[in-house]
Design a protein around this nucleic acid. Structure first.
Lengths: 240, 240
DNA sequence: TTCTTGTCACCTAGGTGTTAATAT
DNA sequence: ATATTAACACCTAGGTGACAAGAA
């Protein structure tokens, strides 16, 4: 069995509508896909890998006025299907189980001609990451048993929209849920949540330098500590 | 068979008397021990590892006046014997052979109680790095064949003296080989060669910002480009 | 208009020799 | 005296979103 790490963080992003940046050179995912594994044969060899399947056959665009995603037509032609093998593959079950398995070398690109082995995705399309465990069958005719020698795990909370630039952050003014001008938790935007939770984006934080990442251990309730003022906190919608 | 990478650089250091820093936290070697492998069974599993054996049973000290190492007595008690497995171990022969194998995760320490798995050495003692290739025998009674299932490779040019601070660099004034005050190639000190050749020490270079590292491809003649002025180029011997 | 690209300041993470202080 | 330690400035290497310019 497999346990998704940082599930609370994934849930928080998923609630806002996760976006992942794709670039020509390749961009890591954030949150990083990380899992804990259980019940493997400690002595057997396994390959661990990921791939990404379209959630639907649609292309999307972001509506600023309503702060929501709209269908913008049928999906573009599918990108070259690629898989990302965890670089430690193959390894024994004992090795995989003794610590968290992190896919932090996986990168997303929109370059159809990419030759760095990165995952190729269409921007403005939605994707579902999948995680596969392949048992390395020592039998000579192992191809015959391919069906029973792997297992696939899907965590729906890791779905995301591929983008070349964040859409969800270009909100004119968050929809107010209370009466005051204070931002409510649900008005947190993708960009702010990324800045607040990704250590590499610390340069863009101008809120209290709190212990944000430490709050994201499993079981923590991170939402209330997720407030980060925008760098331009009061901005009118473009072209009022 | 095994080919030592950066042999020209190793030779250059060896000529001066290589010193490797050991620290409590662990320090990488420079040059890094790197090899190319040939003639393995592409389909078989191998473990690659290194260990370090004393060159002799002596303790050393550095004599400033004569710029040379002197025997300072019998060796201190031997440190706990440790080996460093290359982190990619085990892997197929094909995997090992398809690129240079680099032991850049290996660290040296003088902390006898180290619990980071680093190699423990006595400061002021000389060591010979050794490289071992172990064939992972699939037979059940593989222990019986241990003798024939591994091969050891020793490159004498990788010998070094473990130190907590460079000794060879504390030279009062390099022995002049010419008549002018110019430094001759043989007067290059360990510290200057490290600064000139290790990218991480670039902050201490104050010579022309030349393309030093690129000159160290196999076959290059690096000595002539190795000049780097000392930060305190004119210093009298301590206590003249 | 909408989306993409390249550059940038600002970070994380960690490898250098130097230096001054401290052991021994 | 000689050897070791810890803090430090200065690097390498690379991951961030912001921004301005460009493309469709």
């Amino acid at each position: 069995s497999v346990q998704l790490e940082m599930k609370a963080l994934w849930d928080e992003f998923n609630q806002l509508g996760t976006e992942m940046i794709v670039t020509k050179a390749g961009r890591r995912m954030f949150p990083t896909f990380q899992v804990k594994l259980f019940g493997m044969d400690p002595m057997a060899d396994y390959m661990l890998l990921m791939d990404f399947v379209p959630v639907d056959d649609k292309r999307y665009r972001y509506a600023f006025h309503s702060s929501s995603w709209l269908v913008a037509g049928k999906a573009d032609p599918a990108t070259p299907g690629r898989v990302h093998y965890h670089p430690d593959s193959p390894a024994k079950g004992a090795q995989w189980m003794k610590q968290i398995v992190s896919f932090d070398k996986l990168k997303l690109t929109n370059n159809l001609l990419d030759d760095n082995g990165h995952i190729i995705l269409n921007s403005m399309h939605r994707y579902q990451p999948r995680f596969h465990v392949v048992y390395v069958d020592p039998r000579k005719d192992s191809e015959k048993y391919a069906e029973e020698n792997f297992k696939t795990f899907v965590f729906e909370e890791t779905r995301f929209t591929a983008v070349t630039a964040y859409q969800n952050h270009r909100v004119g003014w968050p929809r107010l849920q209370g009466s005051s001008g204070l931002l409510t938790p649900t008005s947190l935007q993708i960009t702010q949540l990324k800045i607040a939770s990704n250590p590499f984006a610390k340069g863009f934080r101008d809120c209290d330098p709190e212990d944000w990442p430490r709050n994201h251990r499993p079981g923590a309730l991170p939402l209330m500590s997720a407030f980060a003022r925008s760098r331009n906190p009061v901005a009118s919608p473009t072209q009022p």
